[in-house]
Nucleic acid binder design. Structure first.
Lengths: 204, 204
DNA sequence: TTTTATGTTAATCAAATGATTAAAATGGCT
DNA sequence: AGCCATTTTAATCATTTGATTAACATAAAA
């Protein structure tokens, strides 16, 4: 219970933590209030309802995970290789700071797909129109080994390799016996590895 | 409402569908009853409680996703390459038939990690002791380019590349405009692709 | 100091939800 | 048919849970 934050901020912080962990349906407003160290009524005083509070958290979460890399992949000056490198690095850094973010967003998408295509909708088409994706398609078109490859596989692979370890973290650490520090080192190692694997896939 | 199944079976089928979609907390027993076309009380008559019913669904789900490949990866007669191929193929086939399975299991792990390490615990250590993993480590040890690579990255990559598209399916289909058939074809294509990418990573 | 706006709390409400009960229906068995 | 075990239902209960209310506290403004 951090006294240096305002009640409103403490509520949002607690809500983010619990929503990220347990999802919307699995989180009770009373738990948020307790985690924030405030009276339950204050939650409704500041945020009107559980839904409204959730919307705010979700919007901020989506922005964080989608827009973290937007500048990188739209930079017209950098090369394809430079972009691949920058994307992987900045994404992994974001996820190390917010390890539950991917699981949270993907769970809520699965529980409520309609809601989501609407919410993300516009801010998602941009992926196919980024400088990165254009460079990728050009590269595939120019390389005879890649000419029959659906270019979509490549960014999907990068996201898979970056994100999945965070989603499967409890399992992964349990299997391998890694602690939190070791896990962070393990995924940090993957910054370079994923860049190299991706270059292999692209025959670079 | 399939009349050819017993009430007990219809309940389990409905429960599986809803739990897989909405998770434990997001599913109401009344919804299960309605989906199954039976009276709510019947659910408790056959399964005692929502928790007990969930346990059954979860146990079966875990078995399905963990033991689908157990024979393949423990086969002492097949080569490493053959195993990689078989694992990817059988896993993707399983997931095409059960597209919500990974999202379901991973969501519940995230919401309730303690519960899970206990539940999976024993049946998970086996991964590090399989024939596949041994062959993998031997291969890495024998190859100078791979000697400094933590071998764990490789099976993790395979699982990432296989599973993640199913977890991100709503997003993926939304971005690319794929329909269900096209998505299935897309992930089916990945059977061969992932095998090849994995072989690249292993310098095979 | 009184007043007023803002922040906070305890108590309570109403709806949702998991579960139970007691009665009714169903189907085999003699 | 009559009897018995099993299955199914409607009605109800008890608890949980999101939300509201009315009172109280605090601090700034007049």
């Amino acid at each position: 219970m951090e006294k240096d934050l305002s009640a409103e901020e403490r509520i949002k912080k607690a809500a983010r933590k619990l929503f990220h962990q347990k999802g919307f349906a699995g989180t009770r407003t009373r738990d948020i209030a307790e985690e924030a160290g405030i009276n339950l009524a204050l939650l409704n005083y500041y945020y009107r309802s559980k839904e409204k509070l959730f919307e705010q958290i979700m919007d901020e979460s989506i922005k964080k995970i989608f827009f973290a890399i937007q500048r990188v992949i739209n930079d017209p000056t950098s090369s394809l290789t430079e972009k691949l490198d920058a994307v992987v690095t900045s994404y992994i850094d974001t996820l190390i700071d917010n390890p539950n973010l991917p699981g949270f967003i993907l769970s809520e998408i699965q529980a409520n797909p309609e809601n989501f295509t609407r919410r993300i909708g516009l801010s998602v088409e941009f992926i196919l129109q980024t400088a990165l994706y254009r460079q990728l398609k050009e590269h595939c078109a120019a390389n005879e080994h890649l000419r029959n490859l659906n270019a979509l596989h490549i960014p999907l692979n990068m996201l898979s390799l970056v994100i999945f370890p965070f989603i499967a973290r409890p399992l992964l650490t349990n299997i391998s016996g890694m602690d939190e520090k070791q896990f962070e080192a393990f995924v940090a190692d993957r910054k370079i590895l994923i860049r190299n694997w991706t270059k292999m896939m692209l025959h670079i």
